[in-house]
């Protein structure tokens, strides 16, 4: 009798536990569906809207004045390219240098840990704050908004990302490769640049691309540095249009034609990001090295 009751109780408990297990599994799956489905929907919607709005004019024409239909974002594309060019010139070399320090010179030191930590924290500082700082640092002394100041803001935002990915990629290079170079009597700087960095270069390049794609969509730091411009300009010393800024302005405008242009601009940015993210995935999954042990 007693034994049976214990067994029954045990069975009941086991059943309960398996029900809870099933429920938890169900909930996790539900959460995933709840998250992934709308996210995929957003993505598909963006691509659909963008693709149906994109045409050749988008790439070749400047915006038409309010009330006229047509026009494109040629000036914003060129503006973004200029801003990103300035940003990359500043952010990529400094970022790679920082990554080289972390991986090749600073390993295990307190300074390196502090740099790594600060880089990660800096990554979380809102971009609008970066914009204020650059405004105070460059725009105020110059007395006017400029493409240059916008580029500097973007470049500064690239540094932490590039530093951290460069470090990660360099750490994937086996130590044996470094030793081989040093044992040949190759100077350290040469060995780092021509051997270690070169070996990790596919990874470093894609890391830079990712940082590039991320800041390509940054809007907040440009609002009061590059400001935006509806005319054609390639002057680094004047305000300049940028794709994300234009999307922001057009999205909040009351004109359907401008909405269409905003969607097209969003698609261009998304394509850039998809490319960068896929490349990073591809390179890191394959490993930075082919066949090296």
């Amino acid at each position: 009798m007693g034994v049976d009751r214990v067994r029954d109780e045990h069975k009941l408990k086991a059943r309960l536990r398996s029900v809870i297990d099933g429920a938890a599994t169900g909930l996790a799956i539900l959460a995933t569906v709840l998250v992934v489905a709308p996210l995929v929907a957003i993505f598909v919607y963006l691509v659909y809207k963008g693709a149906s709005s994109l045409n050749l004019d988008f790439f070749t024409k400047v915006p038409k004045p309010v009330g006229e239909s047509g026009g494109g974002m040629a000036n914003a594309i060129v503006g973004s390219a200029l801003l990103l060019g300035v940003g990359s010139l500043l952010g990529i070399p400094v970022g790679i240098g920082g990554g080289i320090y972390l991986a090749e010179f600073g390993r295990g030191t307190k300074l390196a840990n502090a740099v790594r930590f600060t880089a990660d924290v800096l990554n979380g500082v809102p971009s609008i704050v970066m914009g204020i700082a650059i405004y105070a640092l460059i725009v105020v002394p110059q007395g006017h908004f400029s493409a240059f100041s916008g580029g500097v803001a973007l470049g500064i935002m690239m540094i932490p990302t590039v530093t951290r990915t460069t470090e990660e990629m360099l750490l994937m290079v086996p130590n044996a490769v470094r030793e081989a170079a040093l044992a040949l009597g190759v100077p350290n700087w040469r060995s780092v640049l021509s051997i270690t960095v070169k070996t990790a270069s596919p990874g470093i390049i894609t890391g830079c691309m990712l940082a590039f794609a991320r800041v390509a969509g940054e809007t907040a730091p440009l609002i009061f540095t590059a400001l935006g411009n509806t005319f054609w300009s390639v002057n680094l010393n004047r305000e300049i249009a940028a794709l994300p800024l234009q999307i922001y302005v057009y999205a909040l405008s009351p004109y359907d034609d401008w909405h269409r242009l905003a969607w097209a601009g969003a698609l261009v940015l998304i394509i850039l990001i998809v490319l960068a993210v896929s490349l990073v995935r591809y390179v890191t999954s394959r490993g930075v090295l082919k066949g090296a042990s």
């Binding site: 070399p93 400094v94 970022g95 790679i96 240098g97 920082g98 080289i100 320090y101 972390l102 090749e104 010179f105 600073g106 300074l111 390196a112 502090a114 740099v115 600060t118 880089a119 924290v121 800096l122 500082v125 704050v129 970066m130 204020i132 700082a133 105070a136 640092l137 500064i156 540094i159 932490p160 530093t163 100077p187 350290n188 700087w189 780092v192």
Partner: peptide, 29 residues
């Protein structure tokens, strides 16, 4: 050359502190 190279890299790394300090200074000011 090795020493110059190492210091350049250290300088790049220190830039990150510089950025944080610069932002803080500008905002406080």
């Amino acid at each position: 050359a090795d020493r110059v190279f190492q210091w350049l890299m250290v300088l790049c790394a220190l830039t990150i502190f510089g950025i944080v300090a610069l932002i803080a200074m500008q905002l406080v000011y």
